[in-house]
Amino acid sequence: MSLLQLPPEILIQVMNHVGSSYFREDLGRLTVCKQWFRFARTACFKDLQLFQKTLRRLLSSREVGRSLLLIKDSLEILDLGLKGFEGWSSIPESQSYPQDVNALVASSWDGDLGRALLTAWTTALDNDLAQLAITAKESRKLRIIRIQASSEHHPLLPLLPRRDYLSLSTIRAFLSGKNLTALELDLCGTLLMPRQEHRDDFHVCTSIGALLTTLRRLRLRMRSICADVLRPQHHDTSLRLSEVLINLSLSNESPMTTSAAHSTRCGPTGGGFLKLKADIEDQAEALAAHMVSPKIIRILTHTLPQLEMRSLDVLTGKCMKLADDMAWEDDGGTVQDDSDLESEILGDDFSTPSDE
């Protein structure tokens, strides 16, 4: 018996076992025959991993309409990896400072042409993401979204100021699906920029909170955050949410990072980091009371000046020290809560410097 003579339910299992990565390595593997394609396309597009360059190639292909239709019909897991602008060699170097290479490169990207290229790239990326978000919203099978956005880095000037490159409205569009069960956002490389006509629309947290009635897992690290991410919009005492991980530490965002920043509070309200941390911990406790089977609720920070990672287990009240190579959800050694020590170091009025 040939492979294609197997019952459809067995063929589906075979394709799922092979996995989407097998077909993404060579899309020609989809085109064995019509019957093969009918089963292979679902396996290929159910777990979609895209980077900014592969997304651009997908949307610039002649078969973009058909590809998006296949994605919409099959997509279950969307995984996006973004690194910011990478085409640093695309601008001619300025000759203003021939004796100083760093000054020469910096002046190139601080000029009109450099800024225009960065702006054009950012607009193009936003358009690509917005188009993908529409497809994701229309996908009835989509259950898991992971988006990681790290800081962009010039290869010769690692200390250039960090630049924001994701728009608030576009990320919010990815959160408009009705059936998401897992959301993982690690957006520590960029603040989310509101559109010029909506400058007072400053955060995505309420959009995340609106998903709590369907989510099973929530994992967040954002440069700007508030307790609204853990506040359901509708009163529900039987949330199926079981795993919540909020990382407020930006200290290990990238090997190029030299600062020891924490997330800042959304919007113009004050209170500093310690107030933000306390608000999120309090709201996490309140959220736990509405979860049917909470398994893990952790809030991650780092100490100052030692820069040691700390994980507060909201369900037990235990504070743990995490080694650098540990995952956010790992159990570390129990330590005394550092909140009093941090208050002495930072002062009651301390607030992390804003990126805006």
Rank of each mutant, 00 (worst) to 15 (best):
Q5E: 12
L6T: 00
I12L: 04
V14W: 05
N16P: 06
H17S: 04
S21K: 08
F23S: 08
D26V: 03
K34I: 00
K34E: 02
C44P: 03
C44G: 05
T54P: 04
L69E: 11
I71H: 01
I71V: 07
K72Y: 01
I77N: 09
L80F: 04
L80M: 08
G84D: 01
N102Q: 09
L104R: 11
V105Y: 12
S107Y: 09
W109C: 03
D126K: 01
A130W: 01
I134V: 14
K137D: 05
E138Y: 13
R140S: 10
K141Q: 14
I145L: 07
Q148C: 14
H153W: 06
R162F: 11
S169G: 09
A173C: 03
S176C: 01
N179H: 07
L183K: 00
D186T: 13
D201Q: 14
H203Q: 13
T214M: 06
M222A: 15
D228H: 10
Q233H: 14
H235A: 15
S238V: 13
S238F: 12
V244T: 00
L245T: 07
I246F: 02
N247T: 03
S251E: 14
S251N: 13
T258G: 15
H262K: 12
R265P: 09
T269A: 14
I280H: 13
E281M: 13
A284Y: 11
H290N: 11
M291D: 06
E308Y: 07
E308I: 05
V314N: 05
T316F: 04
K318N: 12
K321I: 06
T334M: 10
Q336T: 08
D338I: 10
E342S: 11
S343K: 13
E344A: 07
G347V: 01
F350N: 04
D355Y: 13
